[in-house]
Amino acid sequence: MATSMDQAAGWGMVGLAGAIFSYYTIWVIILPFVDVNQNIHKFFPPRMYAIAGPLIAGVVALVLIGSFVKYSTFKSKQKKSKTQ
């Protein structure tokens, strides 16, 4: 039973990732070639956010990863000094 639930969750995540990829691809690659007067433009935010969003997410991810590495290193050094 758990396997089918895991499978459903996996397919849901794959479907969500595919939808996000399709939306972003249309927004960044196809939309610049569509006339500005077309109604499709109302479904997408300004193109500036296509770069700013992933850039901010990447910086936040790097800060979190760096903080985790720093914390782990600090804890490791602290543990070694207690044992000696």
Rank of each mutant, 00 (worst) to 15 (best):
M1K: 06
M1Y: 07
M1N: 09
S4E: 15
S4P: 00
S4Q: 13
S4C: 04
M5L: 15
M5S: 07
M5D: 12
M5V: 13
D6M: 15
Q7N: 14
Q7F: 15
Q7V: 09
A8H: 01
A8L: 12
A9D: 14
G10W: 14
W11S: 04
W11P: 00
W11I: 07
W11G: 03
M13W: 09
M13Q: 10
M13L: 14
V14D: 13
V14Y: 14
G15T: 08
G15N: 10
L16K: 02
L16D: 02
L16V: 04
L16H: 01
A17D: 10
I20L: 13
I20P: 00
I20E: 06
I20C: 06
F21Y: 02
Y23W: 15
Y23S: 06
Y24D: 10
T25E: 07
W27F: 10
V28L: 13
I29K: 04
I29G: 00
I30G: 00
I30H: 01
I30S: 02
L31K: 01
P32N: 05
P32E: 12
P32R: 04
F33I: 00
D35M: 02
V36Q: 11
N37K: 12
N37R: 12
Q38E: 15
Q38L: 08
Q38R: 13
N39W: 04
I40Y: 04
I40P: 00
I40M: 04
I40L: 07
K42N: 01
F43Y: 13
F43G: 02
P45C: 10
M48K: 10
M48Q: 13
M48S: 11
M48H: 05
Y49N: 07
A50T: 07
A52L: 15
P54R: 05
P54E: 12
P54S: 06
P54F: 08
L55F: 13
L55S: 14
A57E: 11
G58I: 05
V59L: 14
V59M: 08
V59N: 03
V59I: 15
V59W: 09
A61H: 02
A61S: 10
L62A: 13
L62R: 10
V63G: 02
V63F: 14
L64H: 01
L64A: 03
L64M: 11
G66L: 04
G66S: 11
S67Y: 09
S67D: 14
V69Q: 11
V69T: 06
K70Q: 05
K70Y: 11
K70N: 06
Y71S: 06
S72R: 08
S72A: 12
S72V: 01
T73G: 02
T73P: 00
T73C: 03
K75F: 06
S76R: 08
S76W: 11
Q78G: 00
Q78F: 03
K79Q: 10
K82Y: 09
K82V: 03
T83G: 00
T83D: 14
Q84M: 09
Q84H: 05
